[in-house]
């Protein structure tokens, strides 16, 4: 029995919550994998900040068109129904509440829904991109993240210690151990890996984990 989901498995789980026809923005990195795991019969329409709706997968190496890239500056492809637009329209889609879902990565998520995912502190060169816009735009903002940092510290915390991307914006977190909703300033456990006990989960969560109702088993295929 698995005791920890891979990034691809977290992405698979997040993909199960995306409805057919949803307009979706996927953050650079882990979240991009969500596009691979759309359930059969459903087709989401993906938005990228630099000005494309409804783009397709990466092209074969050697066939890239560098005018056709995503926000991660990786080459993508056209699909029937693709649309191009400039940046002001792109962020009107974001801030204007037109996206159904944004799925982002995280350094920390707080029980208040605060997200920290753009800066690990004052060292080096700061860079923010579109993250601060996305957290206030989409109707639903979800996060995909390991449950703890590489050195075992909780990433789900009572208050973020790292610089914030947005305040009270995240409503669901898909971690390597569980699916947790955020509402009324509380973490609420919805699903957990059968191999992980509630006590073990609480021990690696940096804030109170509420269990007001039944907790489903988090079952994900081998990928």
């Amino acid at each position: 029995m698995t005791d920890r989901l891979s990034p691809a498995q977290m992405a698979w789980r997040a993909a199960q919550d995306i409805a057919d026809g949803a307009y979706v923005n996927l953050g650079i990195g882990f979240p991009e994998m969500v596009a691979r795991f759309q359930p059969t019969g459903r087709q989401a329409i993906f938005h990228t900040e630099n000005g494309i709706l409804g783009f397709g997968e990466a092209p074969l190496p050697g066939t890239e068109d560098w005018d056709l890239i995503n926000a991660g500056k990786r080459a993508v492809t056209l699909r029937p129904g693709t649309a191009f637009f400039h940046h002001a329209d792109s962020f009107a889609m974001v801030r204007g509440g037109h996206l159904d879902v944004a799925i982002l990565g995280a350094y920390q998520v707080a029980e208040t829904g605060d997200l920290a995912n753009w800066s690990t502190g004052p060292k080096g060169v700061p860079a923010v991109g579109g993250a601060m816009d996305l957290v206030h735009g989409a109707r639903r903002v979800a996060v995909i993240t390991e449950h703890v940092t590489k050195d075992g510290k909780p990433k789900l915390v009572d208050r973020c210690s790292l610089p914030l991307t947005g305040v009270a914006c995240v409503t669901r977190v898909y971690t390597s151990l569980a699916v947790i909703d955020i509402g009324d300033g509380r973490f609420v456990l919805r699903e957990k890996l059968p191999a992980v006990t509630l006590d073990a989960l609480r021990a690696v969560t940096g804030a109170v984990l509420h269990v007001p109702g039944p907790v489903a088993d988090l079952i994900v295929p081998e990928i």
Binding site: E49, H86, H87, A88, S90, F91, V94, R95, G124, V125, P126, A127, V128, G129, G130, A131, M132, D133, G137
Partner: peptide, 17 residues
């Protein structure tokens, strides 16, 4: 990092707007 250039960091959508 050498202090030879100043940076004003602006969220992408705010920059566009």
């Amino acid at each position: 990092l050498a202090g030879k250039i100043a940076l004003e960091l602006v969220p992408q959508g705010t920059l566009a707007e």
